[in-house]
Simulated assay, not measured.
Amino acid sequence: MKRFLLYAALVTGAFVSVFPYLLVVLTAFKTQGQLNSTDPWLPGLPPTLANITRLLGGDFPRYLGNTVLMTAVLTIGQLVFTTFAAYAFARLRFRGRDALFWLYVATMMVPSAVTMIPLFLIMRELDVINTWYGLLAPYILGTPYGIFLMRQFFRALPGGLEEAARIDGAGPMTILVRILLPLCRPALGTLAIITVISSWNSFLWPLIITSGDDTKVMTVALAGLKVGIGVDYNLMMAGGLIALVPMIAIFVFFQRYIVRSVVLTGLK
Rank of each mutant, 00 (worst) to 15 (best):
R3I: 11
L5A: 10
Y7L: 10
A8W: 04
A8P: 04
A8H: 01
A8E: 05
L10H: 00
V11D: 06
T12D: 00
T12E: 02
T12W: 06
V16Q: 06
P20N: 05
L22A: 12
L23S: 00
V24Y: 08
V25S: 10
V25A: 14
L26E: 03
T27K: 01
T27G: 06
A28E: 02
T31L: 07
Q32H: 14
T38C: 12
D39F: 13
P40M: 01
P43G: 10
L45G: 00
T48R: 05
T48V: 12
L49Y: 12
T53A: 15
L55P: 05
L56D: 06
N66L: 14
V68M: 11
V68K: 01
M70A: 14
A72D: 03
V73M: 12
V73W: 06
L74Q: 12
T75N: 05
I76L: 14
G77Q: 04
L79I: 09
F81W: 08
F81A: 10
F81S: 03
T82V: 05
T83A: 11
T83S: 14
A85K: 06
A86W: 10
A86V: 05
Y87I: 12
L92T: 04
L92E: 00
F94I: 01
R95K: 15
R95M: 15
G96Q: 03
A99H: 05
A99T: 06
F101Q: 11
L103Y: 10
Y104R: 01
A106R: 00
A106M: 08
T107L: 12
V110H: 00
S112M: 11
M116F: 15
L119N: 15
F120E: 00
M123G: 13
E125P: 00
E125L: 02
D127S: 05
D127C: 00
I129P: 14
T131L: 03
Y133K: 10
G134F: 02
G134A: 04
L136P: 11
L141I: 13
G142I: 12
G142E: 04
G146I: 06
F148G: 11
F153P: 03
F154C: 11
R155N: 14
A156Y: 02
A156V: 02
G159F: 10
L161F: 11
E163Q: 12
A164R: 09
I167N: 09
G169K: 09
P172C: 07
I175E: 11
L176V: 13
P182M: 07
C184D: 09
C184S: 15
C184P: 10
R185H: 15
P186G: 08
G189E: 07
G189T: 04
T190W: 02
L191N: 07
L191F: 06
A192F: 11
A192E: 04
I193D: 08
I193G: 07
T195W: 05
V196Q: 09
I197Y: 08
S198C: 10
S198L: 15
N201R: 09
F203K: 07
L207R: 11
T210A: 15
K216P: 12
V217W: 12
V220R: 08
A221Y: 10
A221M: 06
V227W: 05
G230K: 13
V231G: 05
N234Q: 15
N234E: 14
M236Y: 01
M237Q: 08
A238E: 03
G239T: 06
G239K: 04
G240C: 14
A243S: 15
V245F: 03
M247N: 13
I248H: 07
F251D: 05
F254W: 09
F254T: 02
R256M: 01
Y257P: 02
R260M: 10
V263R: 01
K268Q: 08
